[in-house]
Amino acid sequence: MSNDIQNKVEELVNYIMKKCLWQFHSRTWDRKRQNDNILGMTAQLIYGGDVKPATPEEKCYWADAVCLADAFRNRFGWLADMDRADKEALMTGLKERIDFLTVTGSLNLELTDVHY
């Protein structure tokens, strides 16, 4: 990943960590599910695709994804100038970084508790 994309990833990470709550559910499997679904849908929206949530669970992820994609577009003007390949690199980098901060690199000792 280029330095430029990496810096942009950090800007998006900073936004999520300051403004969102969905990435901090209390167990590893919960966090993975949240990250996969919400960031997956957000990426589709950023690429210009359409997401059609069918179940209540999907609608819940989608509502967060729509707000996140809009916030990214409104705050980070450079997003509009990126081509598809760069956007993909950006969103992949974002997913990796959020997964690291909230799951694989998290120091939270409660994440692996088998009960809620």
């Binding site: 960590m17 300051k18 901090f24 909230t102 939270n108 000792l109 409660e110």
Partner: peptide, 12 residues
């Protein structure tokens, strides 16, 4: 709070 609250609080 639990460590999850600190994760959120410190991030913010």
């Amino acid at each position: 709070g639990h460590q999850g609250d600190m994760e959120k609080g410190i991030s913010r």
